[in-house]
Design a protein around this nucleic acid. Sequence first.
DNA 1: TGACAATCGCTGCCTAGGCAGTATCATAGC
DNA 2: GCTATGATACTGCCTAGGCAGCGATTGTCA
Lengths: 150, 150
Amino acid sequence: MALAQLKTSSFDIRDSLGYLLAHVRGEWIDAVEKELKPLDLTAAQYIVLLKVGSGSATTPVEICRALQYDTGAMTRLLDRIAAKGLIKRVAHGGDRRCVALELTSDGHQLYPKLLRIVMDMNKRALRGFTKDEIAALERLLKRVALNVAS
Amino acid sequence: MALAQLKTSSFDIRDSLGYLLAHVRGEWIDAVEKELKPLDLTAAQYIVLLKVGSGSATTPVEICRALQYDTGAMTRLLDRIAAKGLIKRVAHGGDRRCVALELTSDGHQLYPKLLRIVMDMNKRALRGFTKDEIAALERLLKRVALNVAS
DNA sequence: TGACAATCGCTGCCTAGGCAGTATCATAGC
DNA sequence: GCTATGATACTGCCTAGGCAGCGATTGTCA
C-alpha cells in the first residue's frame, strides 16, 4: 500500500486513505466492543454514557451535535440505556422542550469502568509512540478532517 | 484537544484518538455520499463496485473478508446493487458454492466515475500534504491498527 | 403584543448490518 | 470410496441509524 502513489492504472482500494481510516476505526470499535461485552453495552451506549457522565453533554441534542448523530436514533438509543437503568431523563429547568440527562446510581457506579476503558484503549493504541509522533498523528488527522469537510 | 495528555481528571471524549478517528472517517463518508448522491449510490455500494470493478474481489466472501463485512449483509447489499442493474451473479467455474461477481455493461460504464471519486477524495483529503507527511500519516495509522488489533 | 420561524424531543417508515441456522458443495483424512 | 470437517451463499430475526413529519415550546421581530 502506498497512499502517495494513487494511480488509476494500478488501482487497489487499499491504496485509499479512506479505506485505511475505516479499517483503523473498525479495529478500534471491535476492540472496544470486546471490552464492553462483559458490561452488556454497545459502543454507542458507551459513548453516550461517557458524554453524560463527564458532564460534557446534558441534553440529547447536545450529544447529537457532538457525535453527528440523528436525533430520532438518539431518542431510541437513550431509551435502551434508560431501560438498562443507567441513565434517566429529568425535567430541564428553563427550557421545557429540553430533557436533562443524568446518570442513575448504577450509571455512576459504572462510569469509572468506562473511563478506564477509554484510557486503556488510547494507551494501547499509542503503545510505543513518542510524544512527537502522537502530536504529529493528531495534527495530520485534523488537517485531513478539515480538507475533507471543506 | 491534546491526545498526549489524556487524564482522568479533566476528561473530554474529544481527547480520544478513537473519537478523532471516528470523526475523520465520518466526515469522509459524508463527503463521499455527497458525491454519490447524483449516481444514486450509497458508500457501501460504491466500495463493492470498486472492489468488483477493479478485479480485487470476484466473490461475495472475498469482499466480506476485505471489508470485515457480514456475509448475510453482503448477500442483501449485492441484491440491491444487482437490482440497480450494475452487477450480476454468474456461475463460478470450479466451485459451485461460490458465485462469481461481474459488472454489467451499465456497471462498466459507471466504474470510471467511481474511480474518479476515489482519486478526487484522496487528492482533496491530502491537499497541502508533502510526500513525507503522507507517508508519516500512513505509517502512524498502520501502527495504531496493529496496536489496537493485538 | 402577535405572528412567524426555529428548536427540541419524539414517532413512523424505510434501509441496513450482526448473528444464528440451513442447504449445498469442497476437501482432507482414513 | 466414505465420512467428517469446513466453506459458501443465503435466509429469518433482531437491533439500529437516517429521514420526514409532528406537537409543544421558545425566540425573534415587526
